Amino acid sequence: MFSEEINKAEALRWAMVGGGRGSQIGYAHRSGASRDGHFKLVAGAFDIDADRCRDFGINLGLDADRCYADYQVMFETEAKREDGIQAVSIATPNGTHYAISKAALLAGLHVVCEKPVTFTVAEAQELKEIASQHSRIFGVMYGYTGFQMIHQAKEMIQRGDLGEIRVINMQFAHGFHATEVEKNDPGAKWRMNPEVSGPTYVLGDVGTHAFYLAQLMAGLTVDSLCCTRQSFVKSRAPLEDNAHVMMRFTNGAVGTLWASGVNAGSMHQQKIRVIGEKASIEWWDERPNQLSYEIQGEPARVLERGMGYLHNDDLAVSSNRIGGGHPEGFFESWANLYSRFGIVMKAMNAGDLETVNNTWYPDIDAGIEGVQLLERCVESADDNAKWVDFA
C-alpha cells in the first residue's frame, strides 16, 4: 500500500513552463505534483501573454511577481532569490522542449518534460550529458507508466510466467481526429504543424506512449523496424494521422505498433499485448486496474489491482493508493510518477546516489528511446517502408 509518510524532506520549490488556462495536461501536472507534498508550485511561465499569465497564476495562488511571460526571465530571476525554484515541468508544444530543457538544466534545475523531449536523438543525448554534468534529474512524462498493473506485467514477464516472449502488439488508436478538427481546435492545430510538432504527428503524440509501455513491460531491445504512415486528412501531410510499424527484437521476437488519430468511434484503444510461449497478458488503458492473463489450456483470467495474489514487488503493490475494488485512474498514475520524481530529485540534492540509482522513473534514456523510434520510423516510411536498423 502507498505510504504517505515517506515525504520527510521539505517540498521542492517548483515551477511550470506552459500548461496555462485551458490546458488539460497542465492541470494533470499540477494535480500529480501536488498530491504527496513533494512539490510546491511557487512560480510559472504559463503563457507568453503577460496579462494572461499573471491572471492565471494569481488564480492558482501565486504571487503576481512570480508569474513570468518568458521562461528565460523566470529562470534568471528565480536564480537570484533565496527561495528560488528548484525544479520545473515543461508542458509546451514539442518544438520548444529542447531549448527550454537545456536552459533549465543550465540554470541548475531538475526537469520533468513532456514527450517527445526533442526532435532529434542528438539533441536528446545533449540534454542527457548536461543533466549528468550538473547532477540534475531529467524525468520524462510517460504518464501511463504510473499504473500499477504495468509493473505487475513487467514482474510476471521477468519471472518467466509467460515463458520466452514471441510477439508484442502495441496500439494507441483513437478516433478524435478522424476529421479536420484542427480548423477550430488550437490544441490540435499545433500537433499537425511540422515546425511545432516535429517530423511526426500520431507516432510522437501517442505511439511513443504504447512503445514505452511495451519496452517497460517486456524489457526487449528493438533490432530493426519498418514503418508505413498515412495522412488520411490530406491537409495534415506530410505529418501522418495513421501509422503501422513492424519490429524485430534482438531475442527473435516480433512486434507491431499501430498509432492512429483516425480510428473512428474509438476512445483510446491503447492496448499492449505480450505473447509468450506459455501465456499472454494484455493491458488496456481504458480498464487500467485490470490485467488479462491467458495461460494456454486454462480458462482466461483477469488480475485486479490491489489484490494479495499480485507479485509483491515495489511498484505493483506499494503504489496502490486505496484498496482493491476501488477504481484508480489517470491522476493516480501521474501522482505515482511525480512521487518518484520528487524522491529522486531530493535524493540528488542530498547526494544520495544510492536512492537515485535504485528508484525507477521514466528518465532521459526513456526519452531518447522515444525520439529514436520517431527518427527510424520517418526514415523507413520515407523510403517506401524499408527495413532499417534501430540502433
Rank of each mutant, 00 (worst) to 15 (best):
D55A: 11
E240P: 13
K102Y: 06
S333Y: 12
V117L: 03
V262T: 05
E282P: 09
S380E: 04
M247A: 01
L127C: 07
H311R: 10
D51S: 14
I343A: 04
R159Q: 11
D83V: 00
S31T: 12
M156R: 08
D55I: 08
L106P: 09
G18D: 02
G26Q: 07
D70Q: 03
R21E: 05
C227W: 08
L373P: 02
L162Q: 00
L220I: 04
S197E: 05
A91G: 08
I275K: 00
M345A: 08
C227H: 03
G160D: 10
F172L: 03
R229E: 03
N263H: 13
M348W: 10
E5P: 11
E123C: 08
E126W: 10
Y98H: 06
G261Q: 05
W387D: 02
E298P: 07
L105T: 04
A214S: 13
N7R: 14
A87M: 10
W387V: 11
P362W: 03
T200H: 03
P299Q: 05
Q152M: 11
N312T: 11
V245Y: 03
M267N: 14
G44S: 04
A50D: 11
F119S: 00
D365L: 06
M246Y: 15
R21L: 12
I364W: 04
R236Y: 15
L303T: 04
M345K: 13
H29G: 01
